[in-house]
Amino acid sequence: MTSDGKLTEREIHQTIWASAIGAAFIGGGATLVFPFLPLFLLELGADRENVALWNSVVVSGMFIVGALIMPVWGALADRVGMKKMILRSALCLSISYFLSFFDQSPLHLLGARLFQGFSFGFNPVSQALLAEISDIHAGSAIGTLVGGRAAGTMLGPFLGGILGSLAGLRLPFLIAGIGDIGAFLLVLFLVKEPAVKTNKKHKGGIITSFHRLSGNNKFLTLIGLIIINQCAMLIINPLISLHIIELTGSSDHAALLSGLICGASGIAGVLGGPFWGKRGEKWGFKKVMVLSFAGAGLFSLLQFLAPSVLLFGMTQLGFGFFTIGGVTSITGGVSKVVDPEEAGSAYGINAEAMNIGNCLGPLLGGLIASRTGSLGLVFISSAILQLAAAAFIYIKVKEL
Rank of each mutant, 00 (worst) to 15 (best):
L7Y: 10
H13T: 14
G22T: 08
E43F: 10
A52I: 14
V58H: 05
S60A: 15
Y97P: 00
H108P: 05
L114S: 06
F115C: 06
F118P: 05
S119G: 12
F120C: 03
A138T: 12
A141V: 03
T144K: 12
R149D: 02
G164Y: 05
S165K: 09
L169N: 04
A183W: 01
L190H: 12
L190T: 08
A195F: 13
K197E: 06
I206K: 00
H211P: 03
L220R: 11
L220K: 08
L222I: 12
G224C: 09
I228N: 04
Q230N: 14
L234N: 07
P238D: 07
L239G: 00
L242C: 04
L242V: 04
I244A: 00
E246F: 07
D252I: 15
C262D: 06
S265R: 03
G266F: 00
F275C: 07
W276R: 03
K282S: 13
G284P: 10
G284K: 07
F285C: 06
A294L: 15
L302M: 14
Q303L: 15
Q303A: 14
F304Y: 15
P307C: 11
T315M: 14
G318K: 07
G320W: 03
G320D: 05
G325I: 07
G333N: 04
E342W: 04
A346N: 05
G348H: 05
A369M: 11
F379M: 07
F379E: 03
L385Q: 06
A388P: 00
A388L: 13
E399W: 12
